[in-house]
Design a protein around this nucleic acid. Structure first.
Lengths: 354, 354
DNA sequence: ATGAAAGCGCTAACAG
DNA sequence: CTGTTAGCGCTTTCAT
């Protein structure tokens, strides 16, 4: 079917070695000869077979990428970044998403390993004590985690400081006068970063002298927010006036559910997400969030992996800067009601550090 | 480094052929022998090398996928669908996005061809007279287009009826009492489907007896909507009361720009998009749009490709059903102003079919 | 500057 | 049921 290097060699009247040298620009070949070979290549429409080459060189110039889902723009953006950097370096991507099913992680990584990808970039449910990572170590295939939380095992990782960010959110909300905070998060076992954000959030609350916030854990794939939020907001006086959501997609859903409950954002409840996905800025109100540089994280991870493949010693884990964006969905704690206005003691409860 | 089939054979005291047979479940192997081989495989942590296999079998069990961008959820969803279907069939995905640069299409497809993917799924800028498709035909590699518009060259395609959908949008808007329609679209040369939607839209307008709508073409990657929309809405009396956008992301941006211009959606202007991306339902107002079954399109394309690889004759192009969703962003044409209310002739101008 | 030949890991006849 | 062996397409010494 397709022309092989042998066909080209024959047609050009040279040996396959010469063709190989020309194609890969390895070793000199006389101009005149080169021309003949080039002609033969063009005539035959020869396209070097990467699998033959890979078998021979023992590397594939391909990277494996494993993420939970493409439906979350945060991952899509990271993949876009990976794609950009990989393309520039002449690498191809073998892609898989696990749909948040941890057991798929193993299957999918195994497959990628059979294809002999040169390295992998992945976001796993939990890097601590994860069989997939053991497998990778055993196989001696370089990898870098992205979005995941640095852990004792010290896997190479590109991420943001989720704990610090969570803390900042708490502090910012406190500064806005909120005293009853809450968090709604995807399953912690499916997301170590959500857990880290919660930890920071709790710490920040304590630091601001606020009571421990209510933490609502929901199935991220099919969140029944109405069912979860309704009881909480049954008692408005005790319900959180500000909600921190473990990611933007969830925050958007929460805003919707709140609306169905007759609550205004940010009038009645402030909502702040995490990720900084693009649509957030187009929402009404615009979404308050913690922006992580997803595209840049994808690029950084790729660069690190590529450098390591090139034999360079690279710092294992990179914490990229995040930025808190107080969009319109997060506002000052609800103004005292008209009745309260006659109660001069109300304002006092705003912002009581410790 | 990694154990090879030969290592396993040696350790189990059998020939490589026996190991191969066991691993691929091709041909009988005595239970006792099988057990020895299995043990050897486990001991050595043997993982069959797919590149060796591919070289030998002349197929890779991998699919190439080429799309404009992952930042648009519509493509991300399709890829998710492809991933689901491919995984079920034991295929791996080689992924690339072109970032809407037609010249990247060729580069990227060439790379995929070197890797000898068994087939490709792609969305190109324009399938009519496209060198990439010629290349694919010449190489004899099966492919299916997704989202693209069926064209005379008759490439296998999975899509929706963009023309019909565009027409329905016009009709629906007319039924809502709008008489001055407009369309804002990404570059037509970068998107044959946008062009098709426009064609249908124009036809629908004519059919409803409306004047030809103003068509605003913008660079989709960095749309300067404010600059484009401001002059148009300088003269409110002549400006469109309803805008059809070539895709949801654009519609969302348009709604934002309109807001900055002091226009309310749908009070002053109705906006309707195309794609049916998930966030649309969470917006305020919810986004009116034409829903295409992106995930399903990804699956359908994959299934078709896989079937064809299996030797089945499959109908080349599949038109999947779309559905018009009149979200809150599209409402009745602006109520007559108080002054107009005294003018009984106003209502008459609603819906005059030809 | 160029060629001959030995693999890379695996499959698939073909023999037995 | 199992083993031998000839490739698959390419790179890479090692000669020349």
């Amino acid at each position: 079917m397709a022309a092989t290097i042998r066909d080209v060699a024959k047609r050009a009247g040279v040996s396959v070695a010469t063709v190989s040298r020309l194609v890969n620009d390895t070793g000199r070949v006389r101009d005149e000869t080169a021309e003949r070979v080039r002609a033969a290549i063009a005539d035959l429409g020869f396209r070097p077979n990467a699998v033959g080459r890979s078998l021979s060189t023992a590397h594939t110039r391909s990277l494996g990428i494993v993420i939970p889902s493409l439906s979350n723009p945060v991952f899509a953006d990271a993949v876009a970044g990976i794609n950009a950097e990989a393309r520039a370096a002449g690498y191809t991507l073998m892609f898989t998403s696990t749909d948040y099913a941890p057991e798929e992680e193993l299957r999918t990584v195994s497959a990628l390993l059979e294809y002999r990808v040169d390295g992998l970039i992945l976001t796993v449910a939990d890097p601590a004590d994860n069989p997939v990572l053991d497998l990778l170590q055993a196989a001696g295939v370089p990898y870098v985690l992205i979005y995941n939380q640095p852990c004792p095992r010290n896997h190479p990782t590109v991420t943001v400081d989720n704990v610090a960010a969570g803390r900042e959110v708490a502090l910012a909300l406190a500064a806005l006068g909120h005293r009853r905070l809450g968090m709604v998060s995807g399953t912690f076992t499916a997301s170590d970063r959500a857990a880290a954000r919660r930890d920071g959030f709790l710490a920040g609350c304590a630091e601001a002298g606020l009571p421990a916030p209510r933490v609502l854990e929901v199935d991220f794939v099919t969140p029944h927010l109405d069912r979860v939020l309704a009881p909480v907001y049954g008692d408005r006086a005790a319900a959180p006036t500000a909600l921190f959501c473990s990611n933007d997609l969830l925050a958007i859903s929460v805003i919707g559910a709140l609306g169905r409950l007759g609550l205004k954002v940010p009038g009645d409840v402030s909502v702040i997400g995490f990720d900084g996905i693009a649509v957030g800025t187009h929402l009404h109100p615009t979404l308050a969030t913690v922006i992580q540089p997803s595209h840049g994280m994808g690029r950084a991870a790729t660069r690190q992996l590529l450098d390591r493949l090139a034999g360079e010693d690279r710092p294992a884990t990179e914490i990229l800067p995040h930025t808190l964006r107080l969009g319109e969905s997060a506002g000052p704690a609800a103004k005292p009601s008209p009745a309260d206005l006659q109660n001069p003691h109300q304002p006092i409860q705003r912002r009581s550090p410790s």
